[in-house]
Design a protein around this nucleic acid. Structure first.
Ligand SMILES: NC(=O)c1ccc[n+]([C@@H]2O[C@H](COP(=O)([O-])OP(=O)(O)OC[C@H]3O[C@@H](n4cnc5c(N)ncnc54)[C@H](O)[C@@H]3O)[C@@H](O)[C@H]2O)c1
Ligand SMILES: NC(=O)c1ccc[n+]([C@@H]2O[C@H](COP(=O)([O-])OP(=O)(O)OC[C@H]3O[C@@H](n4cnc5c(N)ncnc54)[C@H](O)[C@@H]3O)[C@@H](O)[C@H]2O)c1
Lengths: 220, 220
DNA sequence: CCGAGCTTGTGCACAAAGTCACAAGCATGT
DNA sequence: ACATGCTTGTGACTTTGTGCACAAGCTCGG
């Protein structure tokens, strides 16, 4: 379609959603154009980096003016593949699973909650957020009915690999893992992990070695 | 004490807590020594990287044998600054704040919950986990009584900067931000953010551009 | 139509991170 | 004592990411 399709570096991919969030805010404020300078300020990064990042998507800016917010927004959604909503299935209806299920921010950002499943019979049938907890045996069907789906692991660490295998078998193509355990998936499945205790330990490190680590951003 | 104190790269710092978690598991299994090869396998990274990472802490391995688990564990805790527990104060007693407060994994890993505070009068006085929600006006005193403290922002995005400022004013030296907003802090304060919707969008990208992104790990 | 004033897009030089390959060094058995 | 086998620690190289600086290019006013 475009013809140039150059590969986007991982570091850039990791920043695109941040730009996306900012663009959405700008669009809500009826701001029509934005410069790389301003975007950089809002995202807490270098302006040159913003321009380089955006240039991987295509040449969408106008020299002397900046970027058209709505157009860039459209192109960014296209690039990120968030043009259509992508439902999410949460596995584990514990503390975290329930908080996630109650979280409106997911639907708002294009990731509606499709279902919550749990292995515990006592939790199946209870309500969390807008949905009813379903048994693990429903997983394959739920995934098939909603494809493509992102699977979220919110179970204890020791069963994380097992759950991941079940998600993959059910046909999920991307997994977000909150359990503090390594999980392996086939190479065609995307996997990311979020480990909160790990974040605290990184903070702890920079706190005890008091010199500006990579963690802190500019102070205005 | 040691004399050589070379600067540890950020990328290494981000991996150390993962090694720490694995070492704790190994110690629990009464495993006395571990090779870089095995550690790498458990952490899902390259063995040479493990060795280089560990070499920043000091020369604690034994050639032909590997690393003594207990000794390395001790040194790693030392390096990460997690030798003493570091209490955590959560701001915002909503879905996420309550899930965090109920989460045993924090105390287990050296980050006991000191308090939960909230600006909403209706929530002050309610119980979450083992603690009672306190008003914002108690923040400074709570921080003073527990120092050093890590502050966790679990409030809506629009007030995140305000809350961060209050945390800094109260004397917190490290902040973990869950709100989807940029917050600025003075350079001597450590700051990290966790944005779940952002993670989902990154997954979405790699899902729509189906080639192995940086996200997936090996499949055994 | 032209010049002034911005802002983009990118070449380039540098910094950081990752990988390989291997010498150095320890333990064990003979 | 010494050869053997294994694993560490690290120098050299590759890949990836960052930031500067500036030419190219757009808009607008006169
Ligand atoms: N609660 C938090 O704030 C928090 C924070 C950081 C990380 N985490 C991590 O998130 C995970 C969940 O935490 P939590 O506090 O919600 O735990 P939890 O114990 O409250 O909930 C775990 C849920 O998983 C279910 N489960 C157990 N085995 C299962 C299986 N094989 N298949 C499907 N479901 C299964 C349980 O029935 C339970 O409902 C843990 O790994 C934890 O370390 C939680
Ligand atoms: N719930 C989730 O699973 C989840 C997931 C990802 C991100 N988040 C983010 O975490 C944050 C909290 O989410 P939530 O679902 O718990 O929201 P929530 O609305 O349930 O809770 C927010 C809490 O913050 C309190 N608060 C509001 N203003 C405050 C102020 N100025 N000072 C102190 N407290 C204040 C409110 O009283 C409320 O109790 C949001 O930014 C959200 O985007 C939540």
């Amino acid at each position: 379609m475009d013809g140039h399709a150059r590969r986007i570096p991982d570091a850039t991919v990791a920043r695109l959603p941040e730009y996306l969030r900012i663009l959405i805010e700008l669009a809500e404020q009826r701001i029509g154009t934005v410069s790389s300078e301003r975007l950089a300020e809002l995202a807490g990064v270098n302006a040159a980096k913003v321009r380089k990042d955006l240039s991987y998507l295509g040449t969408y800016g106008t020299r002397g003016v900046g970027y058209d917010v709505d157009y860039l927004l459209f192109q960014m959604r296209q690039a990120l593949g968030v043009t259509r909503d992508c439902p999410v299935v949460v596995v584990g209806a514990g503390n975290l699973g329930r908080a996630l299920a109650n979280y409106a921010g997911f639907s708002d950002r294009g990731f509606p909650l499709a279902a919550v499943v749990d292995a515990d019979e006592a939790k199946v049938g209870t309500n969390v957020g807008d949905v009813t907890v379903r048994p693990m045996s429903d997983l394959a069907e739920l995934v098939r009915a909603n494809q493509p789906v992102i699977g979220v692991i919110a179970t204890p660490g020791p069963v994380a690999q097992l759950v991941a295998d079940q998600l993959v078998a059910a046909g999920v193509t991307a997994i977000l893992n909150f359990a503090p355990a390594l999980v392996s998936v086939p190479p065609n499945i995307s996997l990311r992990k979020v480990d909160l205790a790990l974040e605290l330990q990184i903070l702890s490190f920079y706190q005890s070695h008091r010199e500006s680590g990579s963690a802190s951003r500019g102070w205005t």
